[in-house]
Each structure stands twice: as structure tokens, then as C-alpha cells.
């Protein structure tokens, strides 16, 4: 038994297996990103979808048949992949271009002082391993401490050996983000925002004191 999806391809309704649907969507995304730079991309995609709809229509046994992976592969073979379109040189250049732009610098372990409960060890570990929420790491630490007691010692050692992320560069390295003008300005913006919050809080507490 398989799950199916209903799709509208080139104004025709089709019923398609979920795995075939994923393959088809992936294929359309690939050629769309290939044609994105050329003029009339939308129209080209529309033409291609219409033609694919026609090919599916021809290859299906009856109007109630379901498009399977086999059909999708056949149609893709007829339409061709971007490499077949003879634009390999261009895509290759673009490929290396984006690769170099996305070159992430090696991650380094830091203690995150923006997100601390005790010393920022857990939040630093979370950033290093790409865990979205440091609370998860903290929970693991706490549970493991209750059960075995060992992580408490580990925490103390990590506290001593892991340096604090002091500046924007450190913080980017902590998350493994590339160091470039964009990311640094983003980081600086974040810091200014935090600073503003802190100043406001300080201002409030001062105001409170004066009144009291």
C-alpha cells in the first residue's frame, strides 16, 4: 500500500505516488534553479510542465491510473537534466562560486556568555553541535548528573578549559558561520540590540530607585 498525492501539472489533474511526487518536485526544482537566470523562466517552466503533463497523460493506462516512480523516471529521461541541456560549463562555474562563498570556517568551542545559566558551557556546546535550543543540552546534563553524578565534574572541567566567546569573530566561529562583512554586521546588530535592552533595563532600575 502506498500514499498518493493529488497534483495539478500543466492544468491537468494527476494522482501520483508520494515517492514519485517527491522525485518530480525535486526535478522541477532543479531545472527551475537552472533556468532562474534566463529570461522568461516562468514561461519555460510552464511549457515544460505542460509537456510533462502530456507525456504522463500518454503513458498512463487510463485517466484513473496513478503516476509511479517508473513514469517519473521515464519522463525525466525524455526531458533531460540541466547537464543534458549543454550548459555544464556555466553551472560548474556557478557551483564553485557558491561553494567558495559558503566556505564555513572551522567551528570552535566557546562558552556563550549571551546565553548563560551557570557559565555558558551548555549553550556553547549547543552552538557547537548545532543544537537549536541549549535547554536540550542542559536537560541532558542535569538528568545525567542526577543519575550518575559524573557530568558535574565534567562541567567544572569544561568551565575551566573552554574560553569565553569575547567578540563577534569568536561568536561566529562558535556557530561555525562564515566570517564576512554580512555575518559580522548581523552579529554587531544583534549585539547593539542586546546593549539597548541592557541599557533600558539599567535605566528602568535607576528610575525605580529614584522614585523609591
Amino acid at each position: 500500500m502506498k500514499k498518493v498525492e493529488n497534483i495539478n501539472l500543466g492544468t491537468i489533474k494527476f494522482v501520483i505516488d508520494t515517492d514519485a511526487y517527491d522525485a518530480l518536485e525535486n526535478y522541477l526544482d532543479t531545472i527551475e534553479s537552472h533556468f532562474r537566470k534566463s529570461e522568461g523562466c516562468e514561461e519555460i517552466m510552464e511549457d515544460i510542465e505542460i509537456r510533462m503533463a502530456e507525456l504522463f497523460h500518454e503513458s498512463l493506462f487510463s485517466a484513473n491510473s496513478i503516476i509511479s516512480m517508473k513514469h517519473v523516471n521515464e519522463v525525466i529521461a525524455i526531458m533531460g537534466t540541466p547537464e543534458d541541456f549543454g550548459a555544464t560549463t556555466r553551472t560548474r562555474v556557478n557551483g564553485s562560486d557558491t561553494k567558495s562563498r559558503k566556505k564555513y570556517q572551522a567551528k570552535r568551542l566557546f562558552r556563550d556568555q549571551d546565553e548563560t545559566v551557570v557559565a555558558g558551557v551548555c549553550s556553547g556546546l549547543a552552538a557547537y553541535f548545532g543544537v537549536s535550543d541549549p535547554v536540550i543540552v542542559r536537560m541532558i546534563f542535569i538528568i545525567a548528573t542526577i543519575v550518575t553524578g559524573v557530568p558535574l565534574i565534567i562541567y567544572a572541567i569544561l568551565w575551566m578549559i573552554i574560553p569565553v566567546a569575547r567578540n563577534a569573530n569568536d561568536r561566529l566561529a562558535m556557530r561555525g558561520e562564515p566570517i564576512n562583512v554580512d555575518s559580522i554586521s548581523k552579529q554587531v546588530e544583534e549585539e547593539l540590540y542586546n546593549l539597548k535592552d541592557t541599557l533600558e533595563e539599567v535605566g528602568k532600575s535607576f528610575g525605580g530607585k529614584k522614585k523609591g
Binding site: 531545472i31 533556468f35 534566463s38 529570461e39 522568461g40 514561461e43 519555460i44 511549457d47 515544460i48 509537456r51 529521461a77 525524455i78 526531458m79 533531460g80 537534466t81 540541466p82 543534458d84 541541456f85 549543454g86
Partner: peptide, 10 residues
């Protein structure tokens, strides 16, 4: 492959 033709027609 047919994909070659559509950008050309366009």
C-alpha cells in the same frame, strides 16, 4: 533531450 528546446523557443 526535450528540455533543450523550451528555452530556445522562449
Amino acid at each position: 533531450v526535450e528540455g533543450t528546446l523550451y528555452p530556445l523557443l522562449n
